[in-house]
Deep mutational scan, measured.
Amino acid sequence: MASQGTKRSYEQMETDGERQNATEIRASVGKMIGGIGRFYIQMCTELKLSDYEGRLIQNSLTIERMVLSAFDERRNKYLEEHPSAGKDPKKTGGPIYRRVNGKWMRELILYDKEEIRRIWRQANNGDDATAGLTHMMIWHSNLNDATYQRTRALVRTGMDPRMCSLMQGSTLPRRSGAAGAAVKGVGTMVMELVRMIKRGINDRNFWRGENGRKTRIAYERMCNILKGKFQTAAQKAMMDQVRESRNPGNAEFEDLTFLARSALILRGSVAHKSCLPACVYGPAVASGYDFEREGYSLVGIDPFRLLQNSQVYSLIRPNENPAHKSQLVWMACHSAAFEDLRVLSFIKGTKVLPRGKLSTRGVQIASNENMETMESSTLELRSRYWAIRTRSGGNTNQQRASAGQISIQPTFSVQRNLPFDRTTIMAAFNGNTEGRTSDMRTEIIRMMESARPEDVSFQGRGVFELSDEKAASPIVPSFDMSNEGSYFFGDNAEEYDN
């Protein structure tokens, strides 16, 4: 783990906690998980779902989305002020799938948001429990990260689609708070800032007046979040320049895209947490497990152990491969979309394939898809080993990566060399080191050039047997250095459309 220093740990961010010791953190995270579980059980009762239907990941996603929508204050306010045809701002819903006479049927349900809020609060001892809501947002974000390569979004903001390893959390809503900021990748933060800068260039009043003052505060806050992700002084200094700019424009845009590229080699610290679907927490609570009393951590053995003992089902389209669908969801559960496939294969105990080789589309089923041909199958979400999630980018030494994705962002704290394609990355730096950030740029390029592919990161860190909950005997895996390590390699994943 990167030293926490003055930073709060993510469990504290996750639970809005002030400084807590490890036991208190485990208890408050457990409380959050228990609340999600209780809410899910109650919703299944309301909807009269069978046990099997309640364990269907598509039903879980609909129920999670309903509660997130019920608590989305800004959108609710907007919907009330701008009524649109056929949208009731006070209601929320989605597809629920039921097994009827041996076939899967889709039923569109509609609930009062007020009623959903009441059920959620009741499951969370009367609190709004925003930490639990954020947790579900991060699960949705991790699922998107594993399912889609955001080529269009990258290109629109002047970045290269091969930089997708920097895009963790790119679909997280803005209201996801400190826990959300911690899991956002460098590219995601750059993209958010670039969008602001572009608006400022096109709209003279963007930075002016009372609204402009708020915009400015948001801009500086985002700059500080991004600065905190960088691990070298030169990158941090460049972020200070971007933040202090009187009138952010093209120079800042250039600096930010430069920094994003540099992060492929001088990786930023991005938190990883295993956020599971509500249909995993519900049955665990129903079986009598007391998360608050037992304590829970999002970055240790607990999620692995929970998945070892969970039964989750998914709808499967006619030509999809259930094992591939399982891999997709497994990666999402562990926030591992940008991790090295060699490491993932070792931990999972079966070969993890790149996205383009998977015969599976996303987990969600569109409303126009034919239910007649839908089957369902068990998702295999178990693992051979477990490993500690990392909050750091690993040290800054790398190795060759593949054509589709030119770097990785480690999820697990496991000893290995970190793949990246130096030639491709360095070719993108057209040696432009003039301007006010020239000395920093020169320094950053120097550090990137001296990074050695064969150097090892996370020295001495290994994986653990599932029986080793105290992480007492690390097993340090050895990897084939020459092997392909990137998930979005030469990829044809669908595009994420909101």
Rank of each mutant, 00 (worst) to 15 (best):
N370Q: 13
I57M: 13
N76E: 08
I408L: 15
Q168P: 06
E244N: 06
V363I: 12
R216A: 11
W330H: 02
K31W: 11
G200A: 12
R195W: 05
L466P: 09
G102T: 02
I475V: 10
T171F: 01
T411R: 07
S3M: 00
S310K: 09
K236R: 15
I316K: 01
H140W: 11
R461M: 05
Y281S: 03
A428G: 11
K184N: 07
A332M: 04
G288T: 07
F304Q: 09
R65V: 07
E375M: 14
L276C: 15
R19D: 02
T442Q: 01
Q58F: 03
S84D: 10
R452G: 12
F346Q: 08
V100G: 05
Y52N: 15
M238K: 09
A366T: 10
R446A: 14
N492D: 11
V456C: 02
I408H: 00
V194R: 00
K90Y: 03
R74V: 02
S314Y: 03
R422D: 00
A284V: 13
I265D: 05
L172Q: 10
S170K: 10
R361F: 07
E252I: 02
Q241A: 05
G431V: 15
S170M: 10
R162G: 09
E252G: 09
E292R: 02
I33T: 14
S170F: 07
T257H: 08
G37V: 11
V352A: 07
I109H: 15
T378P: 01
Y111N: 12
C275K: 00
S287N: 12
R98I: 13
G462A: 10
L108S: 15
M196E: 13
E252W: 06
Q327G: 05
M239R: 02
M238H: 11
L418T: 14
N483Q: 10
F412I: 11
D480G: 11
N59P: 04
R199F: 13
M66V: 15
R391I: 07
K87V: 06
K351P: 05
K198C: 05
Q12P: 09
M196S: 11
P161R: 07
A427W: 04
D127H: 13
R74Q: 08
R199V: 12
S478D: 01
D497I: 11
A493E: 10
L259P: 07
